[in-house]
Design a protein around this nucleic acid. Structure first.
Lengths: 261, 261
DNA sequence: CGAGGAGTTGAGGCTAGTCAAGGCCCGTGG
DNA sequence: CCACGGGCCTTGACTAGCCTCAACTCCTCG
């Protein structure tokens, strides 16, 4: 597990003030630290502080930088014509931000810090040029886009759940899994986002999120205290999330004939 | 508009039998044909036929190839533990398939042909090597991942709609826009997927999709005949999709303070 | 200490899920 | 050629769940 080492380094850097992050550090965050050659120690990127509620970039802005979350957390949002805010997902330590601008070099979403946070700033043109020289950086970029795509798929899975309680259960498990992957506790969660943010992400009303949480708490799966959630009965939560409205019958994959070239 | 030219070429290729697709052709599909240098004419990739209902790749398989839809259409799916099939999205001509395997070189979803289709096979290692030499190919890959991310964001937007009729309206408009971008009609749609596929993608019951379609038809926005849909009143559909449950009040973005480094 | 946002809880109405039945289309096979 | 079968799709009736509205509490922050 490389996360603890990464964390220590991160804190040290912050204490030192405005830091330069080595590319090798980013590779370690992404779990491909073994790819880091000596050249990745020479390539450095600046850190940027982002105060709580500040926007890192805004939908429609031209792409200048990609960002990697160094500390804190973000929500990614889209605003529709009426100003309604759709939350696309949440970014934690090590997650890359701004990738959906790769299409036409315009940000397709906005990123808002949920707390006082910091990001490593990756000037896109520079990163691209460096990635041609350093295979590890190229791999980092590809890996990040793939991870982001997978993330979105997971989110769609959350949103597709039949009942609101199942959605919230899946959401909590999803978050716990991500935190655990970062070396933090997979049982104790501090929700950095509001209930409304969660609600938007899951496609339900924010009151429903509230009710689902108390419901899960009453059934003994979790303990809720404001934004602190403890997963008491992980197995129970897992069972909970499998309650799909008769879907086992309706949506069974019809044993596909595999196609071989 | 480069789509018609691309289509003609495509049909010609198909008539000639098992074809080799030039990389310059793929660049044209992606809308960056102007980047195609002479070297992109020498790089060729094979075509593969995929009969209706066949799976192009399966969740969990190691990544060997990426694919670009040459003709026909696909659905991307994930199966959860109980075998329930979650549709993540649909791929049309020019869309890239398999990108979510970039994370850990394992496909995170499966792709199923909705009709007799064909794809350009891009051996991943080969494509990666070529992209280091040819900037246009590198750009193609980045653009494709960005486009895919945007696509997923759009899908989340579809799923987040408050009422089922709105979801279906958004879905139809979304599909129409994509078809129009390919140079096809933006008014007449032939749905290649079943109602159940749409339902899964939108997170509703398949009966609800049916009812929503008849509802939209009765209100004069569309005309439905089996899988053929005609968008009669596009403005009406657009108005329809803006009916969000009081969200204008609840979810208004609270005029964020922009953060400048 | 006050203001305002965040969260919770309750009541009620309506949407959409569930179950069920029937029609349509298209394949296969006699 | 037609009969048959099995999907896909549609429609109806019922009901559960969720959205809406509203009131209230709690916490945070100025």
């Amino acid at each position: 597990m490389n996360a603890p080492a990464a964390c220590i380094t991160r804190i040290d850097e912050r204490r030192r003030g405005p830091a330069q992050f080595r590319a090798s550090e980013l590779l370690r965050w992404a779990g491909i630290g073994e790819c880091a050659g000596p050249d990745t120690d020479r390539i450095v990127y600046p850190l940027r502080r982002v105060p709580a509620l500040a926007m890192l970039y805004v939908e429609g802005q031209p792409l200048h930088n990609l960002y990697c979350v160094a500390s804190g957390s973000f929500k990614c949002i889209q605003n529709d014509v009426e100003g309604y805010e759709q939350v696309l997902g949440f970014a934690l330590h090590g997650d890359m931000l701004g990738l959906d601008a790769l299409c036409d070099h315009q940000h397709a979403s906005s990123a808002v810090a949920l707390e006082d946070s910091s990001v490593v700033v990756l000037p896109f043109a520079e990163l691209l040029a460096a990635s041609r020289q350093v295979p590890a950086l190229e791999r980092l970029l590809l890996r990040a886009t793939g991870a982001e795509l997978r993330q979105r798929g997971d989110t769609q899975y959350l949103m597709a759940a039949p009942s609101s309680e199942v959605r919230v259960a899946r959401f909590l498990l999803h978050l716990a899994r991500r935190q655990a992957a970062l070396g933090q506790s997979g049982r104790r969660l501090r929700l950095r986002m509001t209930r409304r943010d969660i609600a938007s992400c899951l496609g339900v009303a924010h009151e429903t999120v509230s009710r689902a949480l108390t419901g899960l708490a009453q059934s003994g799966c979790i303990a809720v205290s404001h934004r602190d959630i403890e997963i008491v009965d992980a197995d129970g939560l897992h069972r909970m999330q499998r309650v799909t409205r008769g879907a086992t019958r309706a949506g069974l994959a019809p044993e596909p004939r595999m196609f071989v070239a």
